[in-house]
């Protein structure tokens, strides 16, 4: 037994923590790059359907989001359970879409404006009525690039 205690007493194990900040910074940068800061609090429930033919949205600044779904529990006594449209962080009607698109557009340089994509994040259980109205409104406002948000379907 003496052997063990002797050894322990002699060695002074101290792990150098000098490189710890570097490691943490590495992790930090990873998360900073990966992070998509959530711009709007979701007031509607959106569970996007599954699909296989997906395209990735590239430039985040060129994308505007339209959410459609049932209002979440806390808004149901005010807004009911019918599917509603959410633009930015508030409930809206289809008539508010042109103004919303225009507000997003003026922030961008002119040469990029024709690459704006509208991402439609629509709950799978919503009926097509409201979706058609939105599509018609988008077409009328000249916003033709549309991305139906969907999750990747597992390969069979």
């Amino acid at each position: 037994m003496a052997k063990f205690s002797k050894k322990r007493g002699k060695a002074k194990p101290a792990i150098s923590t000098a490189s710890l900040p570097d490691i943490i910074f590495m992790l930090l940068f990873f998360f900073m790059v990966v992070t998509v800061l959530r711009d709007a609090e979701l007031k509607v429930k959106v569970v996007t359907p599954f699909a296989s033919e997906l395209t990735k949205l590239e430039e985040k600044s060129l994308v505007n989001y339209l959410y459609v779904g049932k209002p979440t529990q806390q808004y149901q006594n005010v807004y009911g359970t019918k599917p509603r449209l959410q633009l930015g962080d508030k409930f809206a009607t289809v008539r508010d879409i042109p103004l919303f698109l225009e507000k997003h557009k003026v922030k961008l340089p002119e040469n990029k404006r024709d690459r704006i994509t509208s991402s439609l994040r629509i709950d799978g259980e919503v009926t097509m009525g409201i979706v058609s109205d939105i599509k018609t409104q988008l077409r009328k406002s000249g916003q033709l690039k549309v991305n139906y948000s969907a999750k990747k379907k597992a390969e069979k």
């Binding site: 996007t48 997906l54 395209t55 599509k135 077409r139 549309v146 948000s149």
Partner: peptide
């Protein structure tokens, strides 16, 4: 952010 990209026809 993935989805089905669609080009809507002009109104």
């Amino acid at each position: 952010d993935k989805g089905i990209l669609v080009k809507l026809p002009i109104w």
